[in-house]
Design a protein around this nucleic acid. Structure first.
Lengths: 204, 204, 204, 204
DNA sequence: GATGAATGAGCTTTCATTCAT
DNA sequence: TATGAATGAAAGCTCATTCAT
């Protein structure tokens, strides 16, 4: 009993309590759905009282908001490297774009809970004004702009193309996450097929 | 009061109560989320007592299930015509496939509540065993098979291609429905761009 | 289907519906407790609509009352024979009294549902004013009176003795019915032991 | 209002809330029947919210169980003294047995609500496995064993005799409690008559 | 005599949240 | 920083009962 307790306390010192709450909450939200997760359940999982959560988050919805923002931050940072390479001018822009799209899908599949909660939930309020969300989409536009600038695409409507690409990668990511019971072909093949077809179809 | 009552009664005779319940429930489920809609709210909206709902549906989850099945039925019937033309052999299979993909998206955008509730909710249980759901996906496969048979595609992995196409159309449909605050380009253009690029990218 | 229906209808003609309702209700009341039995459950068991019950009984409590009165009638008629013998003067009054007590217990054990519902439920309202109830207790008093008149008992407080005997037989009957999980000795032996001991203890 | 509040608060500090809930619940259960008592009614009576009850009892049935166990504990402790005297060997075992039977009845009449709820309700589930219940019956057996060992009874079937005695005292207790409208003779006389007759009838 | 449709009232239980400590 | 005690509100669901037919 004491050992367990001691271990937990050490855990607590390592991560901040705030982080622990967010991790537990995100897992539970996706496992059981936001509405089906009570503050008590979250508190139980991290061995604190429900009241403790209110010391770190105003209410349940703010907890959700915080989790989503953190997700966008993670995604943006995953895409940062691509943006850097792009600016260096040493790489093929189409290949970089495809690489970026793969990173997007991989991020979603690697963090299905984050993705689902952020992109697939009843949560319209906050997203598009959040600067970090805008930033994430901006990276995609950059890639498309570069391809257009290099004369690689048959169209020069950057907005339209970017949104079409986002549609495709969002589609495959969300289907794979949400409909896990469906008999999909191997993930890698499916994802590549989507990205390759889209980009090939756009090329000049 | 009496006038309202008289009007309502006329309404009631026209649609069956069962249908009224489903319509009200679907709207509310999408507006507020399944978990946030109480049986009482549904009943209030149609001016019946909560008990009346239980005369037509065993419980809340059965109500949801019924709504989803009805959606798939609608979608399948929207695609039926394409299937018929395909079997006639008188039409270009690639054009038919694209037409079918457009119908899918249009169905989703025309019935955003149906689409969202059926494809975008925490509702994994039932979908893929439902025969009408299987039927809907079968229509898509038919179209792809025809293109492959006609030597129009550079790959002959029908499953893979079908799933990739579904990913793309699902992606654009769900983004347009769910993120209505985002500054998308004109819907027609975006949808066409997604479908055209995907199919073009697949062609031989 | 039709056969079953036809058979049921024949049944219905034989017993009156009123009787069917009472039988079904009594069984259910004891199986599940008065409060846990809904009018719908009763109706379902006899394949009628709930409304049909209201054509025969004003409400649920009147249904209960009717069942209890019927039980007392049955008990009184079971004891009638003893009363007759007593008046004939040809039999030993102590033996007749014991015989009557046995009949009481046997009636209870043979109709545990009736007994439980009538004597062991939350049902204080009606009992002691009901003439048939008074009649049943009168039979017991008769037997005690006869024993006293014959000088066979050491006390002549007929009321007191009757009530003591009732206590004893009620006690054994209700324990056997209600605590069926308890490891009682053989019923016959227990019942005889109670009656024999009581009567022997009362004798001069 | 404030005065009432202040008074209530003092009350609350005195008894634990847990005890208050049990007391209120037991009274209500007997007054109105377990099934007719809602958690709200219990809460109202002690001036707490319904939720407060759930802080102390998992659900309604656990509340009932706790009350019954408490009753058995009270009964067992009332009988403890007799058991002690018995083991001392300084007292007449038949007198002790009768004394014990009187204590049983007196306990029931002094706590009619406890008795009724525990022994006279639809509540078969738990009783006979509860160790405190077993203990209570064991005390009775002890008394009977001692009488048999002293050669005071004409039979040596301890189980049978104990159960017969329990039947008798349970009978008189439950009749007096449950049929309070019946014109019983003086309680003392009736109880003594039952116990004396039974024991006398058992003696050698 | 019998029913189908409907309801108002009520149930047990859970929730997000607060407040004194 | 963290908690234990408490609550108002609301949830899903069932019930006895009525009424037009």
């Amino acid at each position: 009993m004491l050992t367990v307790n001691a271990f937990q306390k050490r855990q607590r010192d390592k991560d901040t309590l705030r982080q622990q709450i967010m991790d537990a909450a995100r897992d539970l939200f996706v496992e059981q759905g936001y509405e089906n997760v009570s503050m008590r359940k979250i508190a139980d999982r991290i061995d604190y009282s429900p009241t403790a959560i209110y010391l770190h988050f105003k209410d349940k919805s703010e907890l959700l908001k915080s989790i989503c923002t953190a997700t966008f931050t993670g995604l943006a940072s995953a895409l940062e490297g691509i943006s850097a390479k792009l600016h260096s001018g040493k790489h093929d822009p189409v290949e970089l774009l495809k690489k970026g799209l793969h990173i997007y899908v991989e991020f979603g599949l690697a963090h299905p809970n984050h993705y689902q909660l952020t992109f697939l939930s009843h949560n319209d309020d906050l997203r598009h004004e959040d600067p970090i969300c805008i930033q994430a989409f901006a990276y995609l536009m950059e890639g498309v702009d570069a391809c257009i600038a290099a004369g690689r695409f048959s169209s020069n409507h950057a907005q339209e193309i970017s949104q079409a690409l986002w549609s495709a990668v969002h589609g495959v990511t969300s289907l794979l996450i949400q409909h896990s019971a469906f008999p999909f072909v191997a993930r890698k093949r499916l994802v590549s097929r989507v990205i390759d077809s889209m980009v090939r179809g756009l090329e000049a």
